[in-house]
Write a protein that binds this DNA or RNA. Structure first.
Lengths: 290, 290
DNA sequence: CATCATCTGTTATTTCATTTTCATAAATAT
DNA sequence: ATATTTATGAAAATGAAATAACAGATGATG
């Protein structure tokens, strides 16, 4: 471990706390696409970060450089060194860690899962599912199991802002028969069921299905038995180098769905959102005006 | 639309024969450590290649640029594109959908977030945090906010299996002062706080800190104020083409941590796991019907 | 050998980018 | 609330770097 090159990126991050608001904003902008943006003219960098020109000049001084040109020179040196490095760390995600480190192995697996999963998704199915989730004429039920109820709740928290007529059911609870009384034909269930598949969830799906509800299922690559009842199923690859499965890919799908539903209903829910935003608004960490 | 982006390096090599002696000398100097040298001042490049300043200016014109600044700008663009490259070139993620489809746009953003986030994580910090989370001599508290409590609970559900002496606190609840009574110096808090940062979470962090507990923070790129109290912070990029933020990257980190802690404590907790799994199965039996 | 064409470097000019100065605004403490 | 410190941006002043104009050098051709 002789290498102590301490890149500028490192230095910026280390000093992040000593920086002022505008400077931090600038710092993030630099790191955003590093190092390219720092190699351009100072004024361009300033405009990009929406701070004034002197702010940039002051920050590079704070970082210990004698001026912007010196800062750039060092950036170029860094770039040169990186290009020459025979074992460029291009194939690792976490810079300083060996490729065998769990951070890199795990991330590799997740990216791979995402690629596989997305490759097998039918976009039309997805669009249909989003339309169903956006339809406020129908009641929307969200169902999760022992572990997956966290995903279900995450979805619920967001959909709650987007649309009314929505219920979160935890399949392990014994209160759910109550909810089912009100289910009408055409209502929509979004169900999460990953291995190991839960009897309760299946049972609930069956009853919902019997009542004429439409089911959308988020499951894993082996597919929960619920998928036979579901109108649309999304199967995620979830295997990672761990004793447990990864929820990252289903979460990605779920968040994408939230974004899509949001787009579909924007007109209706804009006010709804703003009202809620205000309610939660308590911090002013972000600049108000330029 | 298979862009053959035709790098500047390519263009130089292609035109190598049309160049004069001094220009060739210069060209080789540029390619020597590309692209770093081309991003410096023209005069430095000239001195480096031992040619005169106008020679450089003439050559960039010969290459089809309107001036040296334009040449540099294109170099930077190239660099920026290259930084994103690793797999972002995977033209579309969801096969049947156009690249502008939300599935592809969203996934692009998430992959980008992951790369950025992992690139900025210090593996040693990560290992340290995992060791802290694995230490059963200390009580482990897991804290989440309004939205992030889903992440907190997801972590809790897994850690619960791995180790004893663990508590999940929801910061929006008002029951938490209760838990804090028992906090001892050296206890560990894993705290989730993403924008918009919650006062309750900060308060709780302060009290825990005052009691001598060690804090591990999962936050976003702008970092919750809690980070000043935290021994270790992990900042995730969370911006996606949506009205909301993405929890995919923090989830990835969290799952990786679970895997790592699992590895650290495997000897101790193997039995524990099996016992718990059994218990869940039995519980299911009891709840089969309601 | 002379002449022309082309290449190259020196010098001068202009343009552009960085730095400095100063006034205002925000945050903090009193 | 008021005062004091600190942060920030607008604009002027400074400096450097890129371009243009010119002249010397090199090599080719008749």
């Amino acid at each position: 471990m002789t290498d102590a090159p301490l890149t500028i990126s490192d230095r910026i991050q280390r000093q992040l706390d000593d920086l002022t608001r505008a400077e931090r904003q600038l710092a993030h902008s630099i790191l955003e696409n590093y190092p390219a943006s720092g190699l351009g003219p100072l004024s361009a960098l300033a405009k990009d970060a929406q701070v004034s020109v002197p702010t940039v000049a002051r920050m590079v001084q704070k970082l210990g450089f004698n001026g912007y040109p010196e800062f750039q020179t060092e950036l170029r040196e860094e770039l040169k060194a990186k290009a020459k490095d025979p074992i460029a760390k291009h194939d690792t995600w976490a810079g300083g860690a060996p490729s065998g480190h769990i951070l890199n192995r795990f991330t590799d697996a997740v990216i791979d899962n995402i690629r596989h999963t997305l490759g097998q998704i039918d976009p039309q199915d997805f669009d249909t599912a989003c339309a169903m989730a956006a339809n406020t004429k129908r009641h929307l039920f969200i169902v999760g199991g022992r572990v997956t109820h966290t995903l279900a709740e995450y979805l619920f928290l967001h959909m709650q802002v987007i649309r009314p007529r929505i219920t979160h059911i935890q399949s392990t609870s014994n209160t759910w028969p109550h909810y089912l009384l009100d289910v009408k034909p055409g209502d929509v269930f979004i169900i999460f069921d990953m291995r190991r598949y839960e009897n309760n969830t299946l049972k609930l799906a069956e009853m919902a299905h019997a009542k004429g509800a439409k089911l959308i299922l988020f499951t894993d690559q082996w597919r929960s038995p619920v998928h036979q009842l579901a109108q649309i199923s999304f199967s995620s690859r979830i295997v990672v180098p761990s004793a447990w499965d990864s929820a990252a890919t289903p979460l990605l799908l779920l968040e994408t769905m939230v974004a899509a539903v949001q787009d579909l209903t924007w007109g209706d829910t804009k006010d709804r959102m703003e009202a809620l935003e205000d309610m939660f608004d308590q911090t002013k960490l972000f600049r108000k005006f330029t």
